Every structure is written in structure tokens, then in C-alpha cells.
Measured scan of single mutants.
Amino acid sequence: MIINNLKLIREKKKISQSELAALLEVSRQTINGIEKNKYNPSLQLALKIAYYLNTPLEDIFQWQ
């Protein structure tokens, strides 16, 4: 199972779901689904999230 800290990191950086979704060219619902662990992002999307949040990938997504 993958645990993610996306919501915590996104809120710490004061970025809304809508703003992050626009940067990543995905829907706000996609961001919401990832934050709620409804599904895991593709590797490409995970890397883009880490890039736009300027945060190491392993700080956002962790195996458990």
C-alpha cells in the first residue's frame, strides 16, 4: 500500500487542489482522489507532483 503526504505538503505550501490540478493538467477530482488514497498516481504524474511541489518524491509517497 502506498501512503501519501500530498495533502499535508500541498497545504503547507499554501497551494489549493485546483491550483495544483491546473499546474499538472489534471482535474481537481484527480488530486482529491490521490489525497484520499482512492487510487495511486502513475509514475509520470507522481514525478510531476514532486517537481511542482519542489519536494522529493519519497517525501510525498511512501510504501507501507
Rank of each mutant, 00 (worst) to 15 (best):
L24Q: 00
P56A: 10
L8A: 15
I9V: 13
K14A: 11
L43N: 07
D59T: 08
I3C: 06
K12T: 13
A50Q: 04
L8M: 14
Y51W: 12
I34G: 00
I9T: 07
I34H: 01
S42T: 13
D59H: 11
T55C: 07
M1G: 06
K48H: 05
N4P: 02
I49F: 04
L45D: 04
P56G: 05
I31W: 01
L6V: 05
I3H: 07
A21L: 02
Y51R: 12
I60F: 03
L45R: 02
V26M: 05
L23Y: 14
E19N: 11
E35C: 02
Y51V: 07
F61R: 00
Q29T: 13
E11R: 10
Y39R: 10
D59V: 09
L53D: 00
I3S: 10
Q64S: 13
L47Q: 13
A22P: 02
N32R: 14
T30K: 09
Y51K: 11
I49A: 04
G33E: 15
L53R: 00
I31V: 12
T30R: 08
W63L: 05
S18W: 15
P41E: 01
I3T: 14
N32G: 09
F61L: 03
L8F: 14
N54R: 09
N4S: 04
T55I: 08
V26I: 13
L24I: 13
N37A: 08
Q62M: 09
L45F: 09
N37L: 06
L47S: 10
Q44D: 12
Q62V: 13
Q44H: 14
A22K: 12
R28F: 09
P56T: 07
N5M: 06
E25Y: 08
N37Y: 06
E35W: 01
Q29W: 13
R28I: 15
N40T: 14
S27H: 11
A22Q: 12
I34A: 02
A46P: 00
N37C: 08
L47D: 06
N5L: 04
Y52F: 14
R28L: 15
I15K: 06
Q62C: 07
R28Y: 11
S27Y: 03
I9P: 00
Q29D: 15
K12L: 13
V26W: 02
L45I: 08
V26S: 04
K36R: 13
N4H: 03
L43M: 14
S27E: 10
L53V: 04
L57P: 04
S18K: 14
Q44R: 11
A50W: 02
K12Q: 14
M1C: 07
K38P: 02
Q64P: 14
E58P: 10
E19M: 12
N4T: 02
P41I: 10
T30W: 09
A50T: 04
G33F: 13
I49V: 06
L20I: 05
W63I: 06
L47T: 11
K48F: 04
L6N: 02
I60W: 02
W63C: 05
Q29Y: 11
L57N: 02
K38E: 15
I60H: 00
K48I: 05
A22V: 09
L47G: 07
P56C: 05
Y51D: 09
S27W: 03
I15G: 01
N40W: 11
I49W: 01
Y39G: 05
N37K: 09
E11C: 07
K12V: 08
L20W: 01
Y52T: 11
T30H: 09
D59N: 10
N4E: 02
E19A: 13
L47E: 10
I2C: 08
I34T: 02
A21V: 03
N40R: 10
L45V: 06
A50I: 03
L57D: 02
E11M: 11
Q29V: 12
K7C: 06
E11G: 07
Y39E: 10
E35K: 01
K48V: 05
L24C: 09
E11Q: 12
R10E: 01
L53G: 00
K12S: 14
K36L: 14
L53Q: 02
W63P: 04
Y51C: 08
K12N: 12
L6A: 04
N32W: 09
N32T: 12
N32Y: 10
P56F: 04
F61D: 01
Q62A: 10
L45E: 05
E19T: 12
L57Q: 03
I9A: 07
L8D: 15
Q17V: 14
A50G: 05
I2Q: 08
L23D: 09
K13I: 09
M1W: 06
V26P: 00
E25V: 08
Q44G: 13
Q29S: 15
N37S: 11
Q62S: 10
K48W: 06
L57R: 04
M1A: 06
T55M: 09
T30V: 15
I3K: 14
S18A: 15
I34Y: 04
I34W: 06
E19D: 13
Q44V: 13
F61Y: 03
Q17Y: 04
I60A: 02
N54P: 00
W63R: 04
L20T: 01
G33N: 15
D59M: 13
F61Q: 01
K38N: 12
T55R: 05
A46F: 03
R28W: 15
T55S: 09
L8N: 14
A50P: 00
E35H: 01
I2W: 09
A46D: 00
P41D: 01
L45Y: 02
R10H: 01
Q17R: 09
N40D: 10
K13R: 13
R10A: 02
L20N: 00
N4L: 02
I2Y: 12
A22T: 12
A22L: 13
L47W: 09
N4F: 02
R28H: 10
Q62F: 07
I15Y: 08
E35R: 01
S27N: 08
Q62D: 06
Q64H: 11
R28T: 15
Q44P: 12
I3P: 05
Q29I: 11
L43Y: 15
I34K: 00
P41M: 05
I2K: 09
Q29L: 11
T30Q: 09
L53I: 04
Q64T: 13
A22W: 07
Y51T: 09
L47H: 11
L24K: 00
L24M: 07
T30G: 03
R10Q: 01
Q29F: 10
Q64G: 12
N40F: 13
A46M: 10
N32F: 06
S16F: 04
L20D: 00
A21S: 08
R10Y: 02
D59G: 08
L43R: 10
T30Y: 14
A46N: 01
W63G: 04
Q17E: 06
P56V: 05
L20K: 00
A46C: 07
S18E: 15
L24S: 07
S18V: 12
N5I: 03
R10G: 01
S18L: 12
L6P: 01
E11I: 13
S42Q: 05
A22M: 12
I49S: 01
L23E: 09
S42D: 12
